[in-house]
C-alpha cells in the first residue's frame, strides 16, 4: 500500500513538474503570470509555515521580511544603481536582519502575545514605509525595477528558484533540527529539559523562515517591476496564514495546496465581484470550523480511516 502510494505520488509530482515546465509553450501570458504568482506565494507560505506549522507560533509579521527584501532590492537597483548581485545580497541580508530584530522582540513570548507583537511590528513597519517617502516612495512605492529578461525566461528562473528553495526547506524540516522544532510545538518544556534552548532554536527557525520569505519578496519585486506598500501591510502577512489554514499547516505540501486554492479562488471570484474577500472569508471560516487539518489533513484522515477499515475487514475475515 505504502509502495503503491509512493509510486502514485511520484507519478503525480512528475506530471505536475512536466506540465509546469511545458506551460509557457502552451498557454498565454496571463496564465504564466498566475503560475509565477502561485509559485512565489507558495514559497512565502511554506517559509511562514516553518514558524506556524512546525514551531507552533502564529506570526503576523512575515510581510516585514517579504517587503524588506523587495524594497531593499528596489532601492539598490533604482536609486543606488548597484549591480544586481549586490542588490540581491542586500535584499536577503535585510530580511535576515529584520527576522533577527523581530525574533529578538517576540520569541520570548508565545500564543496570542507572540501574534500581537509581530502584528504590531508589522503595522509599525508599514507606517515607516508609508512615511519615508524619500526612500520608499510612500504610497506610490518604487517603480522601474528591471529584470532585463523576457517573461518566459523569468518564468523558468522563478520556478527553478522556488523549487530549489522548497527542496532546501523540505530537507531542513525533515532533519534533526526539524524534529526539534516539532518537539517545541508538541511540548516546549520537555525540549528545555532535553538540554536544548527553545529561544535559540526558535530564533534559528525565524532566521531561516525570514530568509526564504525574503527570497519570495525579491522574486515578487521582479515580477511586477515595482514594489508597493500593499506587500508591507499587515494584511499581506495574513496571506500565508490563510494559505496554511486552507491547505493544512501540519504538512509540508499543505501551504502550497492552500496557496493554489487561494490564488485561483481570488482570480476566479474577482471576475464576478470585487468583494472576493467575503467569499474567501466564508471558505476559511468553514475550513477552520469543520476541517481543522485543512485540505491535506482531511484527505490524509479519510485515506487513513479507509485503509484501517480495510485492514479491520481483512483481520475479521481471517478470524472467521
Amino acid at each position: 500500500m505504502e509502495r503503491l502510494s509512493n509510486k502514485f505520488l511520484f507519478f503525480v509530482l512528475t506530471s505536475i513538474l512536466l506540465l509546469t515546465f511545458a506551460l509557457p509553450l502552451l498557454s498565454g501570458a496571463y496564465t504564466n503570470y498566475i503560475i509565477i504568482k502561485i509559485s512565489i506565494l507558495s514559497l512565502y507560505a511554506v517559509a511562514f509555515n516553518i514558524m506556524f506549522g512546525y514551531c507552533g507560533l502564529l506570526s503576523f509579521g512575515h510581510a516585514i521580511f517579504f517587503s524588506a527584501s523587495a524594497y531593499t532590492l528596489g532601492v539598490s537597483l533604482t536609486k543606488l544603481n548597484l549591480p544586481i548581485f549586490v542588490a540581491l545580497l542586500a535584499g536577503l541580508l535585510t530580511s535576515v536582519i529584520f527576522s533577527i530584530i523581530v525574533g529578538f522582540l517576540s520569541l520570548r513570548h508565545k500564543e496570542i502575545h507572540f501574534a500581537m507583537i509581530t502584528l504590531a511590528l508589522s503595522m509599525l513597519f508599514w507606517g515607516v514605509v508609508m512615511k519615508w517617502r524619500s526612500v520608499t516612495g510612500g504610497e506610490d512605492g518604487i517603480t522601474g525595477i528591471s529584470r532585463s529578461i523576457s517573461m518566459i525566461a523569468y518564468y523558468y528562473i522563478c520556478i527553478i528558484t522556488v523549487l530549489s528553495c522548497l527542496f532546501i526547506i523540505y530537507k531542513i524540516i525533515f532533519s534533526d533540527f526539524g524534529l526539534l522544532l516539532e518537539g517545541i510545538r508538541e511540548n516546549e518544556i520537555r525540549v528545555e529539559f532535553s538540554a536544548h534552548s527553545v529561544v535559540k532554536l526558535r530564533m534559528l527557525a525565524m532566521i531561516i523562515s525570514g530568509l526564504f520569505t525574503g527570497i519570495a519578496g525579491i522574486l515578487w519585486a521582479f515580477l511586477d517591476g515595482a514594489v508597493t506598500p500593499t506587500i508591507a501591510h499587515w494584511s499581506f502577512s495574513a496571506v500565508p496564514v490563510i494559505a496554511a489554514l486552507i491547505g493544512g499547516p501540519q504538512s509540508f505540501v499543505g501551504p502550497i495546496i492552500g496557496t493554489i486554492v487561494y490564488v485561483i479562488a481570488e482570480d476566479f471570484i474577482t471576475r464576478f465581484t470585487l468583494y472576493w474577500q467575503i467569499w474567501l472569508g466564508i471558505v476559511v471560516v468553514l475550513i477552520v470550523l469543520f476541517f481543522r487539518g485543512g485540505i491535506v489533513g482531511t484527505i490524509a484522515k479519510v485515506v487513513s480511516e479507509f485503509y484501517h477499515s480495510k485492514l479491520r475487514e481483512k483481520y475479521r475475515e481471517r478470524e472467521n
Binding site: L179, E182, G183, E186, N187, I189, R190, F193
Partner: peptide, 11 residues
Amino acid sequence: VNIFQGLSVWE
C-alpha cells in the same frame, strides 16, 4: 507524564 505525545517513541 510529560513526553512528546504526537511523536513516535523513537523520536
